[in-house]
Computed example of a mutant assay.
Amino acid sequence: MARPMLDTIGPKHVAIIMDGNGRWATMRGRPRLFGHHAGARRVREVVEACPDFGVKYLTIFAFSTENWKRTQVEVAGLMSLFRRYIMKEMQAFVKDNVRVRFIGDRVRLDAKLRGLMDEAEDFTKHCTGVNLTIALNYGGRDEVARAAQRLAFDVKEGKLDPAEIDLETLPRYLDTHVLPDPDLVIRTSGEARISNFLLWQSAYAEYEFLDTLWPDFGAEELGRLCAKFGERDRRFGAVKA
């Protein structure tokens, strides 16, 4: 059955903290990785729904810099899932005209995964539909620190005048420098915190915190939130005359 099109002005860039996979699995008496696999399958539905609601950019939080603290078994399982997901979905991304990018620090990731990430980005670079950005080994503070390091290096090399650094300068050094800032940030699973996600970029984003666990989140709920976004009066600090 066709999904209804959004008839209000919705967000162009939606960012999602996909939380609740482990709890979803535990509630069903299954291991946490079972929930992560279910969550990965849910991504396809959400990506496919984006054009219906006018969403041009979708950024998803897949693995944070803090997630390395989880058990070795879970981390290894997640890395295996990421490799398989990229290999399995690459053709589908092209078929659906989805351009894929990755943000985060790739240094700690294994060589095979890094190679697949590079391949997916190159394989889909001609796609002009939804821009899917996957945050992998990503942390907002880590991103800003790495950006500051690159900026400082350019100052040292004489490529950048410290006196000319302003609010427009740092974003050019962020992982997301080719992306617009998110309009709407969604977090599933009932937690009401941003967990180090897109700290600089989401300064003026609208937030939605849902009780829904990520494997239960779908196109219908995305559409509802996009419609709700369209009803908001976004003034960015100004007031109407």
Rank of each mutant, 00 (worst) to 15 (best):
A238C: 11
Q72V: 10
R235A: 04
F197Q: 00
D110Y: 07
V75H: 08
G129F: 04
D118C: 11
R84A: 13
R41M: 12
A147Y: 00
F236M: 11
D7L: 15
R141H: 02
R234I: 04
M5V: 15
P182T: 05
R23W: 12
V178K: 13
V55L: 05
I60V: 15
S64P: 04
F82D: 00
H36D: 08
N137S: 13
P215K: 03
E168L: 15
A15Q: 00
G237Y: 13
R224L: 08
R187G: 01
H126R: 10
H36M: 08
D96C: 10
P4Y: 05
R150H: 09
D105F: 06
A163T: 14
E48Q: 13
K159Q: 14
V130M: 07
A148N: 09
C50M: 04
H36L: 08
R28W: 07
V43I: 15
A203Q: 06
R141G: 03
L151V: 10
L210C: 09
K240R: 13
D110E: 05
E45K: 11
D166K: 14
K156G: 03
E119N: 11
I17A: 03
F209L: 05
S202P: 03
A76H: 12
F61V: 08
P215R: 05
M1N: 14
T188D: 03
R108A: 12
S195E: 00
A227N: 06
N137K: 07
K228V: 13
P162A: 07
D118R: 14
F217E: 01
D110N: 04
D118G: 10
N67F: 01
T59F: 00
A145N: 13
W200Q: 07
F102H: 00
L210D: 04
P11T: 10
N97V: 04
F63S: 00
T212G: 09
I60H: 01
A49Y: 09
L33T: 03
Q201T: 06
E231Q: 14
F93R: 01
D19F: 02
A62R: 06
D110S: 02
L6C: 15
L199D: 02
A38C: 12
T169M: 00
G54I: 08
